[in-house]
Write a protein that binds this DNA or RNA. Structure first.
Lengths: 334, 334
DNA sequence: TAGAATTACGGAAACGATTCCAAACTTGCG
DNA sequence: CGCAAGTTTGGAATCGTTTCCGTAATTCTA
């Protein structure tokens, strides 16, 4: 039925023969309305094709039933979709909508986006980055609850959820060890970002725990691209005593490593096992053989962020700094 | 400066020694306000840290300064990010925000999402799908201007923008012909969707235009995955007279084709040129050699959709059905 | 069955902007 | 200088809800 745009709560009241207060109570599922009145109000609502105007409600209650989501680079990776999806799934269940703004990391835009969201009385803002890093936020954002996804502020004064990279690095390496490998290469990114540092730490720790020594020449740093992975892999293969397995910083580097391995006539995983990080479906699942990879839990980070915002846990004295486990996605490369 | 949440237009009026009407006029850049009053109002605004409440404005004007964006599968491909990005870039320039809902193609959710957006007085809705297809929409969506992105309705009663797949198929094939190839394979998807049908048509037409015959055995239909592409490529390579170039339905199939080609000891592009469709950066740019591919113009479709909605072109008698060109992205595989 | 306690209900006031009309003030021109 | 035309200004009315308070109706208790 085509809804009429001009039906108000007052029309409903009249039609149902009740007062506007009662209509409002029905609309909001308040108690203290008799079954029969509730019924007749509901009938009037469908008969007249009433639609509640969110703006009026928001004006009166100061709640917009919306949360903001600010991202830096929504278009470059498929990660963003997962964060949005996670946040939305929980927001929706609580009748909230997502206001999305992509900023390309432009701080002017970030500030005005925040301002705009504040004008709209968002109940909180999720600030998500596409790679794990430290951020500095516009001042105005602190006027509303904020949760950081995949990033953090220097002083840890805002709640944040990031992947547990160290544990991921550990788990990846341990997985190789458990599969019998004793000489394990690490093809790492050559820029010092949290992912690079922490995965490396995890790698070392797993070696130590497994009773294996740390060998400097097994670790090669390169650009985080296929070509970097390719070069690094070649270097490892030319070692007097090459590794039998390699842990790659990300799927793209692994992709390059694959090429180098195949080029040498070696087989994956028989001659060389490969594990990597990010689990970009598009790559990992489509490589041949399927690439075992540590998943970045974007969907769950998005969920957690929305839950935290909407749960009013935000009054805790300290801002929680969550590290979420990265699940190991097994395919055929180990 | 920390804004005070309780400052209203009336406080500004008082502080600046003017009436509320004047403040409103300043806020909205209306003419007929003397320079000096305008100035003093603006000063009062910053001094008091005033922030306009969007809900009040929306209530009075019935305009929310927002447009809705409904997608089917936001998380599975990186395409969504581009559509959002495009739509947002133009929306933002006009002070509009995006309300995003992902539905996983659940029609119940689609309807309630629409309802929710209508309650919020969105000025229009963009309905975007992740692959080019026909859709049926919830009835209620027609109460507001709608634009379809990457999809269309059977009766063409709603404005729609889709990639020009036929022209893309034509351009891809023609590109191979222009590079001297006379025997060109086509590895196509084995499901009859618009992309499959139209790219095929383009392929035929380009052959005809180029004075080349259409040879049935050069066209192989398979699952649109790497393994499908792999199988298809092997089949083509075992032909008595194999092609010297191949056009793949998408990057994933091309990926499989790459494997088959390399496995036979052939070189790309010397022994076999490859061109494909979709231009998924993550794949096409990272394959070795870089994969030449027809780009799906998601960003521009998003832009166009938002522009159309906000431009009030929506009163045209007939709903435009736009087909947007897919640019050829050259890399090293041809 | 009276009176207390509880539940159901009606409607004024408030949320904070925009819009419109009338009034006050300028300016221009013969 | 006087009047018309134009510009600037103030503020009441309005948008459509929710909330709150007082009253009416009902149920409970002894």
């Amino acid at each position: 039925m085509a809804r009429n745009r001009n039906i108000t709560i007052r029309d409903i009241a009249q039609r149902a023969g009740v007062g506007i207060g009662t209509v409002s109570r029905v609309l909001n599922n308040h108690p203290n309305v008799s079954m029969s009145t509730r019924q007749s109000v509901q009938e009037a609502i469908v008969e007249l094709g009433y639609r509640r105007r969110a703006a009026a409600k928001a004006l009166r209650t100061r709640k917009s039933m919306a949360i903001g989501l600010i991202t830096d680079f929504i278009a470059v990776t498929p990660f963003a979709g997962n964060v949005i999806c996670g946040a939305q799934d929980v927001a929706w269940r609580r009748d909230h909508l997502l206001l999305v703004v992509n900023t390309n990391a432009d701080s002017i835009l970030e500030e005005s986006a925040t301002e705009n969201m504040l004008e709209r009385d968002v109940e909180g803002i999720i600030y998500a980055t596409m790679w794990h890093r430290e951020v500095t936020l516009p001042d105005n954002i602190r006027e509303v609850p904020v949760v950081l996804v995949n990033c953090f502020v220097a002083d840890r004064s805002l709640p944040s959820i990031v992947p547990d990279e160290r544990r991921g690095g550990y788990a990846a390496t341990e997985h190789l060890i458990r599969n019998g490998h004793r000489r394990i290469g690490f093809i790492n990114h050559n820029v010092e970002i949290p992912a690079q540092v922490l995965r490396w730490e995890g790698y070392r720790k797993a070696l130590a725990t497994g009773g294996l020594g740390y060998d400097d020449e097994l670790v090669v740093l390169r650009r985080s691209e296929p070509s970097g992975g390719y070069e690094a892999m070649r270097q490892l293969l030319h070692l007097p005593q090459p590794p039998t397995a390699v842990f790659c910083f990300n799927d793209r580097m692994a992709m390059g490593a694959y090429d180098a391995i195949k080029e040498c006539g070696l087989k994956i995983p028989q001659d060389m096992a490969v594990i990597s990080y990010d689990n970009q479906e598009l790559l990992a699942a489509n490589l041949h053989p399927g690439l075992t990879s540590m998943e970045l839990p974007h969907y769950h980070m998005g969920r957690w962020a929305a839950e935290y915002l909407l749960d009013d846990l935000r009054d805790r004295e300290v801002a929680p700094q969550i590290m979420l486990e990265c699940p190991l996605i097994e395919r055929q490369s180990v």
